[in-house]
């Protein structure tokens, strides 16, 4: 490489020449008349480095994030806030009643963790539970056969007439 092409110097300064290619170019830089293109390339870098920094406005990042359709970031200040025990108990009772009225068969099962029982027509038919309730449809009805399903239906209607 007796002649240095400006592109090779640019590539070298940009770190795109590696290994043997970089060493070969370094050797030619010491040849007479080779310093000028190298100096010109350095000047170009210095001049373009003198451009204003073009810093984005301070609020731009937040504006962009506000426009992105995504879930809110978890807020650590709210994560530690728990509802009061009284309100959670009330919610638990209401939840338990909601399930029980619709699925008394399930309520019988769930009452192992509950604390209240209502007796109606000699069977335990309604209750509330503060414990975790399992989904009656997927966990229970799948195992109930046709006969038992009809029995469940009649129990439900009896219970409903007793309550109302």
């Amino acid at each position: 490489m007796s002649q240095i092409h400006p592109e090779h110097i640019e590539d070298y300064l940009a770190g795109q020449l590696q290994g043997a290619a970089a060493r070969k170019l370094e050797m030619t830089l010491f040849q007479p008349g080779m310093a000028e293109p190298f100096r010109e390339a350095m000047k170009m870098r210095a001049i373009l480095g003198a451009l204003p920094p073009d810093t984005p406005p301070s609020g731009l990042t937040d504006q962009i994030l506000a426009r992105l359709p995504m879930a809110a970031e978890p807020d650590s200040s709210q994560a530690d806030t728990k509802p009061s025990s009284a309100s959670s108990s009330i919610r638990g009772i209401l939840r338990g009643f909601g399930w029980s009225l619709r699925w008394p068969g399930f309520a019988l099962n769930a009452m192992s963790t509950g604390s209240g029982v209502v007796k109606a027509s000699g069977i335990q038919s309604a209750g509330y539970s503060l414990g975790p309730l399992r989904d009656p449809v997927s966990k229970r009805l799948g195992k109930v056969g046709g006969m038992r399903r009809r029995l469940l239906k009649s129990t439900l209607s009896k219970l409903w007439s007793t309550i109302t």
Partner: peptide
Amino acid sequence: NDPRAWRGLVEKYTPMVYRIAV
């Protein structure tokens, strides 16, 4: 769709995107 990852991406690359655009 982790919001923290999105924040990381936007904070890391907004300056570059803006510099090219401006």
